[in-house]
Design a binder for these strands. Structure first.
Length: 444
RNA sequence: CGGGGACUGGCCUAAUGGUAAGGUGCUUGGUUUGGGACCAAGAGAUUGGCGGUUCGAGUCCGCCGUCCCCGACCA
């Protein structure tokens, strides 16, 4: 893609310093724009990031055999009354609700247990239909008490929610395990430094819940990690212990706990039969007796992921996208627009043809501005056509996540600074293809 | 909802109660091209809204709105 084929506008002036680095960088880089409290525009390039997240999540869901569908966002009160959650959500003031022309009441769905349970009851009548996991990736609405930190806590956001339906407890636990493994894979592939913690089930209800937390100083949640065993827990689960003088690990009773902050990326619950019983939703078992579904539910904050990774992965110059989420693998930059643009177009075209998704910075700007933008926008690779090309047809390649390359001139200062100093086009292609095809998307 | 703060061209900021200023970005022309370069010209604002005090309000007062930060809740 050429620069002008998409909206890429960066702000030279820094915005409010009271906001988190991720919020600040995504605004400065033009990945999102605010419209109201907790409501954001996803810009074209911001959407490219989110599509990458969505594709990773979709692949992860496929490994579990889960089936994708789409549930309505506008949901009738009558359905929510079946579980008594209409009351609950309105009382806590977190539901956006409205009435239609006939004065029937509706909610903009913050989650979808009721609808999916109804769907299951209609479509999974016997034990032969089980187990099944359904999932969707749709906008969700919550009138948050306090929206904050950009799209980390929005009032409109994209959530992946999945629901499993099982014949008994052990089957439910099996589905839970499948999802747990898929989540671990997804967050690893996204490039997160994350931990899995045991958590409180909150308003969703049920038991056996686990949260996946991205470690970040700007995180809203406090985690305690036992230094003695592998136990990691959300602070909420320590509540009764906090009131005592010294908190201890519930697993090994050790008191040496490390406190960290985290951003909740995903949360999985074993709902048991809470919803199926309330909604009288069940199946015929092999004995010909009606039984209630054993359920699990599994959420991932999709829109949140794009910002959470930036909270973790940034430096003075700007964003550092992991390869797996980057809108572009790299940017092709002619150092001198007059001299090198034709070559740059040529290189760009060949990389595209080799299946490498790169951006061409064909703007008639000074090299400094192009590099500053490349660093702010965080493309994993910067591919420069300059002196080395003039001399011996070599491209200069910079890796965004390596911090100590010489910013003034492209010169190799020490072994660790610029391991990929100069490459021929073929060498570069081979290298990039290898990186892209790495299943865990670890940067090479 | 409790506590704090803010609101001035797209963005960042200035203006003892006295002509709304500068930077950046944008447009045009020129120059320049290995780190946001330089020169010139230009467009862009009823200072969040309403009311009050005053000869005079961006500035003081009141009400309202919006947004941000800390807390309770959550993907």
């Amino acid at each position: 893609m050429k620069y002008n084929d998409i909206i890429l506008r960066t702000q030279r002036n820094d915005t409010d310093s009271a906001i988190s680095p991720g919020t600040r960088l995504l605004i400065r880089g033009g990945f999102m724009e605010q419209i109201a409290s907790g409501i954001w525009i996803t810009t074209p390039v911001g959407l490219m990031v989110r599509r990458n997240v969505e594709n990773l999540v979709r692949k992860g869901m496929q490994t579990t055999g889960a089936i994708e569908l789409e549930l309505p966002i506008l949901q009738p009160k009558t359905l929510w009354d079946e579980t008594d959650r209409w009351q609950k959500y309105l009382k806590e003031n977190i539901a956006f609700h409205l009435t239609d022309r006939k004065d029937n009441e509706f909610m903009l769905a913050p989650t979808a247990e009721e609808v999916i349970t109804r769907f299951a009851a209609n479509n999974l009548p016997t034990y032969r239909d089980l187990p099944k996991i359904f999932w969707q990736m749709t906008p969700k609405f919550r009138d948050e008490l306090r929206p904050r930190q950009g799209i980390i806590r929005g009032r409109e956001f994209i959530m992946k929610d999945a629901y499993s339906f099982n014949i008994d407890e052990s089957s439910m636990a099996h589905s839970f395990d499948l999802m747990e493994k898929a989540y671990q894979q997804i967050f690893t592939q996204c490039g997160f430094d994350f931990v899995q913690v045991t958590a409180d089930s909150g308003t969703i209800g049920g038991s056996g819940s686990a949260e996946f937390m991205a470690i970040s100083d700007t995180g809203e949640d406090v985690l305690w990690c036992c230094q003695n065993c592998d136990y990691k827990g959300n602070q909420e689960t320590f509540h009764n212990l906090v009131e005592n003088a010294t908190p201890e690990c519930p697993k090994c009773k050790n008191t040496n706990l490390e406190e960290k902050r985290g951003i909740e990326l995903g949360h999985i619950f074993q709902l048991q039969q809470t919803y199926s019983k309330l909604m009288n939703a069940g199946f015929m078992n092999s004995d010909g007796i009606k039984s209630f579904y054993w359920m699990g539910c599994y959420g991932i904050g999709i829109s949140r992921i794009a910002q959470a990774i930036v909270e973790q992965s940034n430096d003075e110059q700007g964003i550092i996208w992991p390869l797996s989420l980057a809108p572009f693998t790299g940017v092709v930059i002619p150092v001198n627009t007059d001299k090198h643009l034709d070559t740059a177009i040529n290189i760009y075209t060949q990389l595209q043809q080799a299946g490498i998704n790169v951006l061409l910075d064909d703007r008639p700007k000074h090299i400094g501005e192009k590099l500053t933008d490349a660093e702010l926008l965080g493309w994993p690779f910067q591919i420069l056509i300059g002196k080395n090309w003039d001399q011996d047809k070599k491209l200069e390649v910079r890796q965004r996540w390596k911090k100590n390359y010489d910013r003034e001139m492209f010169t190799q200062k020490d072994e660790n600074s610029t391991p990929l100093a100069t490459l021929t086009l073929t060498e570069l292609q081979n290298y990039l293809v290898k990186c892209i095809n790495n299943p865990n998307n670890q940067l090479c």
